[in-house]
């Protein structure tokens, strides 16, 4: 029951984020959405991820987003609804996609198939110790490989951010 409440909250705040015309209001709704996600993670016993979500996304990254909005000086007027080419096509394919995924999911729930595999380790799987141990033993290789991805992202960010 709690899950459905939180999930409803996430969906509503996400819709409000993209529906709002004022970009600052949008950003605030995004904070609410991220917080709701963090609560969901807590109920799933992923405490570390929940803390990261609040600290990094709702904290640091949101500050950056607000900075960008202020620097660009976006007023609500400039963000008018614009019609893009082939909009109906895009909307249509989006609806079909959503319907497909939801249909499949509901069909599976209907067939009573949605019994997930229980998390290993009971209630301690999401603690800092458990996640840290996993990262440095079982998933040590992907953990190291991510560094290359981050390096590429840094190079890309510098390249796109640099003036001509």
């Amino acid at each position: 029951m709690i899950f459905y409440l939180i999930a409803f909250g996430i969906v509503v705040t996400a819709i409000l984020t993209i529906a709002s015309r004022n970009s600052v209001v949008s950003a605030l709704w995004l904070v609410a959405c991220l917080f709701a996600q963090a609560i969901l993670m807590v109920t799933l016993e992923a405490h570390l991820v929940a803390a990261m979500q609040v600290l990094l996304y709702a904290g640091a990254i949101m500050v950056l987003i607000l900075f960008v909005i202020m620097l660009l000086n976006l007023t609500p007027k400039e963000l008018k609804w614009k019609f893009i080419a082939g909009e109906r096509l895009i909307l249509g394919s989006g609806v079909i996609y959503l319907a497909g995924v939801m249909g499949l999911a509901l069909w599976i729930i209907y067939k009573k198939g949605a019994s997930f595999v229980p998390a290993a380790g009971g209630g301690t799987a999401g603690t800092v110790e458990a996640v840290g141990k996993l990262l440095l033993t079982k998933y040590a290789l992907p953990f190291e490989l991510v560094s290359v991805t981050l390096l590429v992202a840094i190079v890309g960010a510098i390249l796109t951010g640099r003036g001509k």
């Binding site: 995924v101 499949l104 999911a105 599976i108 067939k111 198939g113 949605a114 019994s115 595999v117």
Partner: peptide, 12 residues
């Protein structure tokens, strides 16, 4: 373990 969920996973 769960064949039905696997269908959804593979579709995505």
């Amino acid at each position: 373990i769960n064949k039905l969920l696997m269908v959804l996973a593979l579709a995505l």
